[in-house]
């Protein structure tokens, strides 16, 4: 029996779901190994008997809350995919604004038709078994997880900085070009795609840990003399959700 797979979307651009369809060279092999039974981006049929559910998007509305609770109940294994599902992502920028003001800004006088909440990662609402962060998620990492699940071996995200992949790619460090890249504090797994093409890392895969963040605070202030507010603004792009209700 092939594992039954579902791919769901909450508040997001659904780019992470699309990233699965973009696995063009592997798609046939993937369909040989698993059965996709519920996927809005890819099929009309819907089944709720699911082994592994992949969810992209943040929990940002009461409907999202109900949906993600249903996914959890129907899926033996639940995987958050992408920055929105794993961190809250860009959706969390609204958490730092007044709810009435952003609702009116987006929906005008129909704002009351669209109830909303603070944006949260899905792990804030239900138990999540695996996370594949990134904006979008890296579809090679998605394949690696699928293979680990099929083979029954442990899966772990890289526990090191984007700098590692950036150096392996032979790039010139963006600090040498005057850019305050967030690579040193950000979890790798993206093959340093942004620095490789000349854009600083924006930490879409989340931060590495307290030690690196404390070092960043020191270095940005004492070595690079950067305004702390500017660094925080960069960190908030994907990481404004703190879990404890605080607004960094």
């Amino acid at each position: 029996m092939k594992p039954r797979i579902a791919i769901f979307s909450l508040t997001s651009c659904e780019g992470c779901s699309l990233a699965i369809l973009e696995l063009e060279n592997e798609l046939l092999d993937l369909l040989g190994a698993v059965e996709i039974v519920n996927f809005r981006e890819g099929m009309t049929e819907r089944s709720w008997d699911i082994d592994v559910g992949f969810v992209d998007g943040a929990v940002s509305t009461p409907e999202d809350e109900r949906e993600v609770t249903r996914y959890r109940a129907c899926c033996k294994t639940l995987v958050a995919i992408g920055a929105c599902a794993c961190l809250g992502g860009v959706n969390t920028l609204k958490n730092r604004q007044e709810m009435e003001s952003y609702r009116t800004y987006v929906y005008g006088e129909r704002a009351r038709w669209f109830p909303t909440t603070d944006a949260r990662p899905i792990s804030a609402v239900v138990k999540v078994d695996y996370e594949l962060p990134g904006c979008p998620m890296n579809n090679r990492e998605f394949l690696r997880l699928v293979k680990c699940l099929l083979a029954g071996v442990p899966f772990a995200l890289p526990n090191y900085a984007v700098c590692v992949e950036c150096k392996k790619a032979g790039n010139l460090c963006l600090y040498e070009r005057g850019q305050m890249c967030l690579g040193p504090v950000t979890r790798a797994g993206c093959n340093a795609i942004c620095p490789h093409y000349g854009s600083k890392c924006e930490a879409c895969r989340g931060l590495l840990g307290a030690e690196a963040l404390a070092a960043a605070r020191l270095n940005m202030r004492e070595i690079w003399k950067v305004d702390e507010e500017r660094v925080l603004a960069d960190l908030r792009l994907y990481g404004a959700y703190q879990g404890d209700g605080s607004k960094p």
């Binding site: 090191y160 900085a161 700098c163 150096k167 392996k168 690579g183 040193p184 504090v185 404390a214 070092a215």
Partner: peptide, 13 residues
Amino acid sequence: ARRCYSCGSCNLV
């Protein structure tokens, strides 16, 4: 080490 990111750049280069 308070300033060290543990990014490994020193090793890799």
